[in-house]
Design a protein around this nucleic acid. Structure first.
Lengths: 259, 259
DNA sequence: CACAGGTTTTGAACGCGTTCAAAACCAAGC
DNA sequence: GCTTGGTTTTGAACGCGTTCAAAACCTGTG
């Protein structure tokens, strides 16, 4: 019914050009990408600044355009809607999180510790944006929106995050002791776990989101405990059932097929 | 900071007057409530009809007003915003669900069966609204919105639903065998479980939401199994931990305090 | 009947996200 | 230089949710 309107008109596939518009040695920019990418970046930076200053709803497209010194129509040339301004932000934050977490993980081998570090790192990275994150969360919750963490458009961010959790697991002491199938499944599960934390975080109005931090602090050891326990014989039937359920019903909806 | 704008101006506390405007024997309506309540109901009915016909976003406030034969401003006299039109709908559906489920539960004693019946009943009641439910789900996901299932304004609907799950449990064969504390906690947990199903349902685009139905069919026995298993000694420490976590971190955020 | 005080209703207006036809700009080919 | 075809930019306009001062409507009281 409703046509999938392209995310941007400025370029057909803006996927793999992260640092492409970076300054070339000669000082001259690429003929095609240069100017265009520059405007695009300018818009995004301005938008993010204003979002943080005034919140998502309070920041009007007109204000963004004015602040960036261009026309309203032009911002729509690069970003199909106000929502799409967020996608860039979301991708960026995910990458930053992965980097920050990987760094902090260095030297730790206990699974519970590693998990706690990864989640704590997310809270650190996301903290500055809490106020306006809550405001645009509703957008992400729309099943039809491309901003939903389950949507195709979020694939890149999701892959980055899941990769991080795979790293959390494989770098830990319990990894080798786990059932291989479960080891394959767990990173996705841990990502889902993060999504739940995010849900909690968004609704958390305590100063500095202290409540969420405490929640993570207390829930992480439990998750670790469950993972460890899952190795024991008694749980095998249940674990098998749950695994099947997740593989058949959850993962397919987030764009993963059982291997 | 932001003032809580009243839900309606037409009446200060529209809580306990469900069937108050019903026809009196004499045919005359109450002096205060009569006309006003009538307009209010007219607006709500019209809105719901249009929502179902065209979807939430496509239905404009102007269209609702026109269709109801009144002015735009007047609808805002009764409903502070477009969102508030949904609250009434949500309350209504919850009540209908409770009634439908209670009826279907009659005669069943096995816990898994009862749970499955209750959840299936929800799917039945919600099915007609799936399309536009998905469209307004984003609104409910806003932490600042009064429509969030966790918000105070949804207290009545939540209480009804939790009550139903309490009934599901107490009417089952395993109820007497459970730890009393857990028995107290479970209804809220089962409600949370429903919320997860709802989340899945909203994102489900298969015809007739068949996928969600299958999901419920397969997950319900597992939930029942976990509940039954929780009685065994080995799990006590874990159960205790989880219980504490939920009581300290989850229930308070949905307006319940530990008893 | 007139008046006052409250409730209900109106419709024009505001600010917002978004669209679109037309203009401006730019590089390449003649 | 001029033309051509593409990309980028503009600003007026549209439709929406929402607000608000004023009008209309009640319902009792002097």
């Amino acid at each position: 019914m409703d046509e999938q309107k392209g995310s941007t008109r400025g370029m057909d596939d803006s996927a793999q050009d992260q640092a492409l518009g970076a300054e070339l040695p000669g000082g001259r920019a690429r003929p095609k990408t240069g100017k265009s990418e520059q405007t695009r970046a300018l818009i995004l930076e301005t938008a993010m600044r204003l979002f943080q200053e005034r919140g998502y709803e309070k920041t009007t497209m007109r204000a963004i355009a004015a602040e960036a010194g261009i026309s309203v129509g032009n911002t729509y040339y690069y970003f199909a809607s106000k929502e799409f301004l967020i996608q860039g932000f979301y991708d960026g934050m995910t990458v930053e999180h992965a980097r920050d977490a990987t760094e902090k993980l260095h030297g730790h081998t206990e699974f519970a510790d590693r998990l706690y570090i990864a989640l704590g790192s997310w809270l650190d990275c996301a903290a500055p944006y809490h106020e306006f994150a809550a405001q645009f969360f509703r957008t992400a919750a729309d099943p039809n929106s491309s901003l939903s963490p389950f949507a195709n458009e979020s694939h890149r961010a999701r892959a980055t995050a899941v990769g991080l959790f795979r790293d959390v697991l494989t770098g830990s002491d319990i990894a080798p002791k786990l059932d291989p199938e479960l080891r394959e499944l767990l990173p996705d599960l841990l990502w889902l776990h993060l999504m739940i934390i995010v849900l909690y975080w968004v609704f958390d109005h305590t100063p500095d989101q202290e409540r969420t931090r405490e929640f993570v602090r207390r829930s992480t050891p439990m998750v670790a405990k469950v993972v460890v326990l899952s190795r024991y014989r008694v749980f095998r039937p249940l674990v098998r059932d749950v695994k099947g359920l997740i593989q058949d019903f959850i993962l397919p909806t987030i764009g993963r097929t059982a291997t």
